[in-house]
Design a protein around this nucleic acid. Structure first.
Lengths: 126, 126
DNA sequence: CCGCATCCAATAAGATACTG
DNA sequence: CAGTATCTTATTGGATGCGG
C-alpha cells in the first residue's frame, strides 16, 4: 500500500485530509477560542460582557483572539458610533456552520476526559 | 463536578461545555497529532513507517506526540520482542471513536479554508 | 530499529500600565 | 467602554548526536 511512491493517490488524500483538519484546528483551537465561540453560540455579546464572563483572560489576549476569529471569518464585529463606545461581536454564518462540530467536540471531551482532569493546568474557563 | 460560586446555571453549562471542547482539542490538536491520527485510521503502523510517511517531523517530536496519544488512551503501542526491534502503533477503541469527528474536522477545513492558504506556514504534511 | 538527551528557536500567553 | 503598548514568561517544536 503505502510505498516510496509519495505520488500515491491515497497518500495525497490522507495528506490533504489531515491538512483540512489542521486548518480547522487552527481557527477554532488555542486556549481561549473554544470558550469565546461557545459564548457567542448563544448570541451577540459586547466586548465587556465577554471579558466579564471570561475573567481569567487578559485584555490583550482577548483582543488578539477576537481579531483572529474575525480575520478567519468566524465572527463579525459591529461598532456602534456612540458615546460611550459600544462594540458587539457575533458569529457569522460561517461561524454558525461550526455549531454541530463544536457540540460534537464538547460532547466527546465531556464523555471521555478523566475525572479530576484539570485540563493540564488550563485554568481558563473551568 | 466543580461547583464554584455558581452565579448562573447557564454559565456553568457553557463553561463546562467549553471545557469538554478544550480537552478534546488538547488531545487531538497540535501540529502533528492530526496527521498521525489520520495515518493510523487506515490501520496499525510501525514506528519507521510513521517516520517515513511524515518526513518533516523530527524523531523527538514524533515520539513525544505518540507518548501523549498513548497517555490519553487514543493509541496503543505494541512491542514485538525480537531482533531487530519492532514496535507497532494502532488506534485504541477510544481513538477509533474519534473517526467521525476527525472526518468532520477535515471536511470543514477543506471546504472552508481559503485557496492558497498555506496553513499559516505549517509545512507539516501539506 | 526504535528510540532518548541536550540544547536552542519560535510562538503563544500573561502582567501591567496607559489611552481615545 | 473598548481597547494599545511593552515587557516577561511558558509552552511547543526543531537540530543534532548518542545508545540499547
Amino acid at each position: 500500500m503505502r510505498k516510496e511512491s509519495s505520488k500515491n493517490l491515497e497518500n495525497e488524500i490522507l495528506i490533504n485530509n489531515s491538512c483540512g483538519m489542521a486548518y480547522t484546528l487552527n481557527v477554532i483551537g488555542g486556549r481561549w477560542k473554544p470558550a469565546i465561540l461557545y459564548r457567542l453560540l448563544t448570541g451577540a455579546m459586547r466586548y465587556s460582557e465577554l471579558r466579564n464572563v471570561l475573567p481569567l483572560i487578559t485584555e490583550r489576549v482577548l483582543v488578539l483572539q477576537l481579531r483572529e476569529l474575525e480575520k478567519d471569518g468566524l465572527i463579525e464585529r459591529e461598532v456602534f458610533p456612540q458615546v460611550p463606545p459600544k462594540v458587539e461581536y457575533r458569529l457569522s454564518a460561517l461561524g454558525r456552520s461550526l455549531e454541530p462540530l463544536l457540540h460534537a467536540l464538547s460532547d466527546w471531551g465531556n464523555a471521555n476526559r478523566p475525572e479530576n482532569d484539570s485540563l493540564r493546568e488550563q485554568p481558563s474557563a473551568c
